[in-house]
Simulated scan of single mutants.
Amino acid sequence: MSGAITEGYRADRDAVVQILNEALATEIVCVLRYKRHYFTASGIHAEGVAAEFLQHANEEQTHADQIAQRIVQLGGEPNFSPEGLATRSHAEYVEGDSLIDMIREDLVAERIAIDSYREIIQYLGDDDPTTRRMMEGILAMEEEHADDLVGLLSDLGEPC
């Protein structure tokens, strides 16, 4: 009666749940940062950039939901507690003072997530292919977000 955990599951379930809870915290922090940036973006170029922030926030929320669902499938409990959220997250919550600062902070966070998720994928290897595939899909979206943000900076005439 262990749900998705069969005798063939080779990963350390407790370690995977802990890693996924850190990824969950990262996604939640990213949702919050992108939402703040969406609501506070201002200036002549703000409308298009804010729309991108909102799209990224919604996609990060989808990632958080996927991760939480996988944690439950593994017999764990997703940690949504706001207490300690920032310390569990791989990315920081930085507000940014201007539209350019916001884009740059989001790019930094995406790059941190990309590196973290790549490490998670390597750690999982063939021991938990379902979680690995989920994280590979999330990683691909994080890479797309980073490309989008670089494009925004370029469109605004900012060096990356």
Rank of each mutant, 00 (worst) to 15 (best):
S2G: 03
G3R: 08
A4W: 01
I5W: 02
E7G: 11
G8Y: 10
G8T: 15
Y9T: 15
Y9S: 07
R10N: 13
R10W: 10
A11R: 05
R13I: 09
R13S: 00
V16Q: 01
V17N: 03
V17R: 00
V17L: 00
L20R: 07
L20S: 10
N21R: 06
A23K: 05
L24H: 12
A25Y: 06
T26R: 06
T26E: 05
I28Y: 14
I28C: 05
V31A: 03
V31T: 09
L32Y: 14
R36Q: 12
F39E: 09
T40Q: 10
T40D: 11
A41S: 14
S42W: 15
S42V: 11
I44F: 13
E47A: 09
A51H: 13
E52T: 13
F53M: 12
Q55R: 15
H56D: 09
Q61M: 14
Q66I: 03
I67Y: 00
A68I: 05
I71Y: 02
I71V: 09
Q73M: 09
Q73A: 06
L74E: 04
P78I: 08
F80L: 14
S81E: 08
S81R: 15
P82E: 12
G84P: 05
A86Y: 07
H90A: 09
E92V: 09
V94L: 04
S98H: 08
S98W: 07
S98V: 10
L99W: 08
L99D: 08
L99K: 08
D101A: 14
I103Y: 07
D106H: 09
D106E: 13
D106V: 07
L107V: 13
V108L: 12
V108I: 11
E110G: 01
R111A: 00
R111Y: 06
R111S: 02
I112H: 07
A113R: 00
I120N: 04
I121M: 06
Y123Q: 12
L124T: 03
L124K: 10
D126W: 05
P129I: 06
R132T: 02
M135Q: 03
G137H: 05
G137K: 04
G137D: 04
A140M: 06
M141W: 01
E143C: 01
E143N: 02
L149C: 05
V150F: 03
G151Y: 10
L153N: 15
D155E: 12
L156I: 06
G157N: 06
E158M: 13
E158Y: 07
P159Y: 03
C160R: 10
